[in-house]
Design a protein around this nucleic acid. Structure first.
Lengths: 177, 177
DNA sequence: GTCTATAGTGGGATAGAC
DNA sequence: GTCTATCCCACTATAGAC
């Protein structure tokens, strides 16, 4: 539940979101139920409703968490290696593979844009667009490439021995111009 | 249920898969339940188990259907416009957008490769690889781009007014070389 | 802010008669 | 190959006591 004044989460609510996150990463999306979240926190499921109106509200917080972390990771990559699309892709891939549950949750359905902190979505997308000279079309194409690579890898769609580093390299070269 | 001799589906089983497909496309993945499928066919849910061992077996048939159709569509595009990556992307996009339920079902989880007709997966992938000169890395990168574009578009992740044709064009140009 | 109890829904799947 | 009846499970969410 968000504080009506500040829009911030209380400590208990933050703990719930943290438990939900751990559950999602350790056991996958099917494990993300109100009962399991409550168990992790050490309370009963109905008590969760004193902190969040419904399950969707918990998921919104998880999506916001993912976007903020991804933005931070991309911004750090940009600062460490300015002008390197390779480095941005590398950071994107690493984040997604390290947090597959969160990445999928925030990625496989429409974003509840009204419920998210303003500007957060743009902040996560900005480094890629900056790198590609603010060309919106190239930015979308490169984003789609990165998302596609990650989605296919997470879903085990590439053959076993595939050299994905090389595919990422080809993609980075294709969009670098 | 597959005929033990031929591996083919009987007429009733084919009807069930067709009903499942229509349900999936018209009402989405959540509507794809054994009860709903049975309703569409005009029988009761338990009767489905005389034709398929479980729900997963129905889904496998849907995945095989999607791969076969996608392969056919890409092969047709290749024949109509040889050497055009643009044309392949166009066909890929159109198929996915026209059959979002099927596309997602066959795409958002690991393929049950042992249960699919041998070679089907490769057949669906072949046109793209042929177009890119059999370069496996370029093939994977281009496939990831196409899948990423489609996934993001299906999930409503692009901003409202985004000119996606242009993003596809940029992607095709980037991988054409 | 936590609990117990429970409503209400819906799902996959099986048993056994016909 | 279809039916009825049923099991067993799991989920989200609410009511009301403390």
């Amino acid at each position: 539940m968000t504080d009506p004044a500040t829009g911030q989460l209380g400590p208990r609510a933050r703990q719930i979101v943290g438990a939900a996150r751990d559950l999602l990463e350790s056991e996958g999306a099917e494990a993300l139920t109100m009962r399991r979240i409550a168990d992790s926190v050490g309370i009963k499921a109905p008590s969760l409703y004193k902190h969040f109106p419904d399950k969707a509200a918990v998921e919104v917080q998880l999506m916001a968490l993912m976007l903020a972390e991804l933005a931070a990771v991309l911004e750090a990559a940009e600062a460490a290696a300015p002008g390197s699309l390779r480095a941005l892709f590398e950071a994107y891939r690493r984040y997604a593979l390290d947090h597959p549950g969160l990445y999928r949750l925030a990625t496989q359905k429409p974003l509840p844009r009204e419920s998210l902190p303003p500007g957060l979505e743009d902040r996560a997308a900005a480094p890629l667009f900056r790198e590609l000279g603010l060309d919106e079309h190239a930015g979308r194409a490169a984003w789609a490439f990165a998302h596609g690579m990650v989605a296919l890898e997470l879903d085990g769609r590439f053959p076993g021995g595939a050299d994905l580093d090389e595919a990422w390299r080809v993609g980075a070269a294709a969009f670098t111009r």
